[in-house]
Simulated scan of single mutants.
Amino acid sequence: MEISPSEIAEDPNPVVGLSGEATMTLGTINHSVKADSMMKTMEFLVIDRPASYNAIIGTPWLNSMQAVPSTYHMCLKFPTPRGIKTIWGDRRFSRSRVAEALEGKRKPTCEHVVSVCLDEAFTDRCVEIGANLSESLKFELIACLKKNLNTFAWATEDMPGIDINITCHELNVDPTVKPIKQRDESWDPSALAQSTTKSRNLSKSDPYRKLGILTGSLTQSL
């Protein structure tokens, strides 16, 4: 939406999605929303993430507009000085936007990060933070990490007193059952030689063709 960073009031807060993933907001911004002849100024949370919508209008705007939405009819009705107005949704457009959003999610995006050393005495004690953070937020974040440096476990010696049941792994088997040794497979020399010869011939004639390998008495495709 080409919003200038100077218009954003810095107030980072976590926003949790349906998947449980938390995203930090950049802050808030007051933006005008026009519906027909009605104009309302609303506060929006600003998030620097790919999304299928430019803005999501919630309950505060609906209440201020005295609007009544209907998801079944895909419309929104609200009173104006010139009577009741209706905004209709476009089902085909909505589906195309959802498809574009899903297509974008299939392409993973990697956020630029920078490495920050938290302990000058140990240069390997580093963490990565977002490179696009504002200078003030970056300064506060680094100060908080350095202040709580002892919270991090940099080595196994930093984690004393852990229950042995957590650090020790075992096979989930019944100890009362007697183990059985698997018998050796009996290979037929003639069948093995025939399969090897056939595979070599196929490889020479068409090296891009998928070959089969003999496993026991079955032949499976690579």
Score class of each variant (00 low, 15 high):
2 E>D: 00
4 S>W: 00
13 N>Y: 11
14 P>C: 06
17 G>F: 02
23 T>S: 15
23 T>E: 15
24 M>L: 06
24 M>P: 01
25 T>N: 01
26 L>I: 00
29 I>V: 06
29 I>P: 00
31 H>V: 07
34 K>F: 01
36 D>T: 12
38 M>Y: 05
42 M>K: 04
43 E>Q: 09
52 S>H: 07
54 N>S: 10
55 A>C: 09
57 I>H: 09
58 G>P: 01
64 S>V: 11
64 S>M: 09
64 S>T: 10
67 A>Q: 06
67 A>H: 07
68 V>N: 05
68 V>K: 03
68 V>D: 00
69 P>G: 04
70 S>H: 00
71 T>Q: 12
74 M>Q: 14
75 C>S: 15
77 K>W: 05
77 K>C: 07
78 F>Y: 12
78 F>E: 02
78 F>V: 02
81 P>N: 01
83 G>E: 04
83 G>K: 05
85 K>W: 03
86 T>W: 05
86 T>D: 02
87 I>M: 12
91 R>K: 14
91 R>M: 12
94 S>K: 04
96 S>E: 13
98 V>S: 13
101 A>R: 09
101 A>S: 13
102 L>F: 11
103 E>A: 14
104 G>P: 00
105 K>C: 08
107 K>V: 04
110 C>D: 11
111 E>R: 09
114 V>H: 02
114 V>D: 03
117 C>A: 11
118 L>R: 05
119 D>N: 15
119 D>S: 10
126 C>W: 03
131 A>N: 10
132 N>G: 07
132 N>D: 08
133 L>E: 02
134 S>W: 00
135 E>S: 01
138 K>P: 01
139 F>M: 02
143 A>V: 04
144 C>M: 14
144 C>H: 15
144 C>S: 14
144 C>P: 02
144 C>G: 10
145 L>F: 03
145 L>V: 02
146 K>P: 04
151 T>R: 10
151 T>L: 11
151 T>A: 12
152 F>E: 08
153 A>W: 01
154 W>R: 02
154 W>S: 04
154 W>Q: 03
155 A>Y: 09
156 T>C: 03
156 T>M: 05
161 G>R: 00
161 G>Q: 01
161 G>T: 00
162 I>T: 06
164 I>K: 13
165 N>R: 13
166 I>M: 09
166 I>Y: 09
166 I>L: 13
167 T>E: 05
168 C>W: 09
169 H>Y: 08
171 L>W: 11
173 V>N: 08
174 D>Q: 08
179 P>W: 05
181 K>Y: 07
181 K>S: 09
182 Q>I: 12
182 Q>D: 07
184 D>G: 14
185 E>R: 15
186 S>G: 10
189 P>N: 08
194 Q>V: 10
194 Q>F: 12
194 Q>E: 13
194 Q>W: 10
197 T>W: 15
197 T>E: 15
197 T>Q: 15
198 K>W: 14
200 R>T: 11
203 S>H: 13
203 S>N: 12
205 S>I: 14
209 R>E: 08
210 K>G: 07
210 K>R: 09
212 G>H: 14
214 L>F: 07
215 T>K: 12
218 L>Q: 13
218 L>W: 10
219 T>Y: 08
220 Q>K: 15
220 Q>N: 14
221 S>A: 05
222 L>H: 04
